[in-house]
Design a protein around this nucleic acid. Structure first.
Lengths: 226, 226
DNA sequence: GATCCTTATAAAAAAAATTTGAAATTGCAA
DNA sequence: TTGCAATTTCAAATTTTTTTTATAAGGATC
């Protein structure tokens, strides 16, 4: 598996656990950093932008649930993978943790091998949605790494939302995206914005591109068409 | 969460487990079907194309691991979500299950609430949207994902209701749909519109397609015929 | 062939959805 | 903090879709 460049942050107040997990994930090829309490986890997360965060629930400063809540409320961490790791073996916390937006919940004591497998499984699943690929569609080039769009021979600068919107539509040319899907993908499952917001962004993209490549399907949604 | 249309297949040889899981997932809004052994699971999977499959490991006919292996080797099931559910609490199997391509591995005894949470979490992460089926009838192609109709070699743009009407009729060529059925399927049980509304839409579709593929059965309804 | 019933057609009205312009708000960096 | 760009909201204008209405046309039955 391609674990290159995948960054993992582990937060736990027990040094032993921290070390053994770090050792095993590093061996697997991940780029691992650690934090020993909730506050440190937040700081390091902001600093290193990990792809996956493993959170102990019972930690000093801020517990794992709080950390998760804070992270998920920030757009930058809305999609980061989160695994709860805890000695608490209680159903309510388990359910709550998952509902809070965690991707997995693992009980201690944990076998390093199993944890590594679960991490791998999570990345494998997430990677199936091709992300970060440069899209080329006739005269249009969309580069998600640079957040840049080349229309014909001139560079177009799109704002973040505009870009993500275009990228989503262009990722499956011809397919209609329902307004709902667009909201979920670009704005996030939980964000509440008016329906007109999508239209306005569509307009901006159309305007800036100067191409007629987004088709409106009234009452349904939008699709990319060249 | 929007669980509409998400199909789940559960395979387990213990009727009690089957029932309790089915009950809880149905309550959550999923469309659940069940199988009581490995072979049945494979058949039902092929038949109903579920979005998620929950597999007991120890089952008659074929065990869960074998079922998973067979499924993953088929392109159609390469991406389907799979959760192993098992009383085996052994590390090797756990790791093996995940490496085989499962997305989660849950030990029995399992709390229904927790299982439902994990299922939700998986769907949330993947955000898999079921795709509609493309209908191909001689020179006509009807693609619900693209909201597009190809008649011969020219693209026809249908409005939402027109499209849905055509899609309904074409989904069962030759079968007569009563006016009532059409109303229910396309307009919904509760919407009240005059009888002439259907005629007008039929006419629009005929007009736009430029093909004579919708036959009127006086006093009964309409049918699609090529 | 007249009558009755049903559907087809065309045009108009009504309803719905999107586009547009502009303003308010938010967020971030200088 | 200020200033700027990005984002969101609002409402009027526009466009498109959907429904209704009125009339014509087609069949079947008597």
């Amino acid at each position: 598996m391609d674990t290159k460049g995948k960054k993992i942050l582990i937060a736990d107040d027990e040094p032993d656990i921290l070390e053994i997990i770090q050792y095993n994930l590093s061996k697997e090829g991940y780029d691992v950093s650690v934090a020993k309490d909730g506050d440190e986890a937040l700081v390091k997360a902001k600093f290193s932008k990990p792809d996956l965060i493993i959170l102990d629930i019972m930690m000093p400063k801020k517990n794992g649930i709080e950390v998760c809540e804070i992270l998920r409320s920030q757009p930058a961490f809305k999609d980061v993978l989160i695994i709860f790791l805890t000695a608490l073996n209680d159903e309510t916390t388990h359910v709550k943790g998952l509902e809070m937006g965690a991707d997995d919940y693992v009980n201690k004591p944990i076998s390093p091998k199993v944890l590594v497998s679960r991490v791998n499984a999570l990345f494998r699943r997430v990677n199936k949605q091709p992300e970060g690929k440069v899209l080329k569609l006739e005269s249009l080039t969309i580069d998600p790494d640079r957040y840049e769009v080349l229309a014909g021979n001139n560079n177009v600068t799109l704002a973040k939302k505009e870009f993500e919107l275009l990228y989503l539509l262009a990722s499956r040319p011809g397919r209609v995206f329902l307004r709902n899907e667009i909201l979920n993908q670009v704005w996030g499952n939980d964000v509440i914005v008016g329906d007109r917001t999508i239209d306005v962004h569509i307009r901006k993209v159309r305007q800036k591109l100067g191409l007629d490549c987004i088709t409106t399907i009234k009452g349904v949604g939008y699709k990319f068409d060249m």
